[in-house]
Simulated assay, not measured.
Amino acid sequence: MKKADMLAYKERLLALRARLRGDVNALASHALRQSDDDGGDSSSMPIHMAELGSENFEQEFSLSLMETEETTLTAIDTAIERVDQGTFGKCVECEGVVPKTRLNAIPFTPVCVRCAEKLEGI
């Protein structure tokens, strides 16, 4: 892959990482908000058990999204390292070329389509 192409992908990866970090921070502050926000006033406490269940579900859902986005952030950081090492665009499994169409869809992917199918058991 040409250096100019690698730099363009690196810029996309950096932008995607910045956006996801903002999303993770927003999810964290929403899911883990403190009772300090209301000055210790318990009026924001749910009165009905169904409300409490809904809030618990929402918090669990947010935490699950955060975990998924953290995994994606790790994959992005690894892809940026591959750009810096000059190995970006090469499958880490078979060392074949990862097609640009795949990289355009999933710029942080470390594997080609064939290896992804093997890894996912398709």
Rank of each mutant, 00 (worst) to 15 (best):
M1S: 09
M1E: 03
K2D: 14
K3L: 05
A4D: 14
D5I: 12
D5A: 09
M6V: 13
A8I: 13
A8M: 10
A8Y: 03
Y9L: 08
K10L: 07
K10N: 09
K10W: 04
K10V: 08
K10S: 10
E11D: 11
R12M: 12
L13D: 02
L13H: 02
A15I: 12
A15F: 08
L16N: 00
R17E: 07
A18C: 05
R19P: 01
R19W: 07
R21H: 11
R21V: 03
R21I: 06
R21E: 06
G22A: 10
G22C: 09
D23T: 11
V24Q: 04
N25F: 15
N25T: 10
A26L: 12
A26H: 14
L27R: 09
L27Y: 04
L27G: 03
S29Q: 15
H30V: 07
A31S: 07
L32E: 07
L32V: 08
S35A: 09
S35E: 05
D36C: 04
D36F: 06
D37R: 15
D38S: 14
G40L: 07
D41R: 13
S43D: 12
S43A: 13
P46Y: 04
P46R: 08
P46M: 05
P46F: 05
I47A: 13
I47L: 15
I47D: 12
M49A: 13
A50H: 04
L52K: 08
L52T: 03
G53E: 13
G53K: 11
G53F: 07
S54M: 15
S54F: 07
S54G: 10
N56S: 11
E58N: 06
E60M: 08
F61D: 02
F61Q: 06
F61T: 03
S62I: 01
L63S: 00
S64H: 11
L65A: 03
L65Y: 02
L65D: 01
M66D: 00
M66K: 13
E67V: 02
T68V: 11
E70A: 08
E70G: 06
E70V: 07
E70P: 00
T71A: 15
L73S: 04
L73I: 15
T74L: 13
T74R: 15
T74F: 08
A75C: 04
A75R: 08
I76W: 00
I76Q: 01
T78V: 09
A79Q: 05
A79S: 10
I80H: 03
E81V: 15
E81F: 05
R82S: 06
D84N: 11
Q85N: 12
G86I: 04
G86H: 01
T87F: 00
G89V: 08
K90Q: 09
K90V: 14
K90E: 09
E93T: 05
E93K: 11
C94P: 02
E95G: 09
V97E: 12
P99M: 05
K100V: 14
K100E: 15
T101H: 10
R102K: 11
L103C: 08
N104L: 15
I106L: 13
I106A: 07
P107N: 10
P107S: 10
T109D: 02
P110Q: 10
V111Q: 06
V111K: 05
C112S: 05
C112T: 00
R114D: 03
A116V: 00
K118P: 00
K118F: 00
K118M: 02
L119V: 00
L119K: 10
L119M: 09
I122P: 02
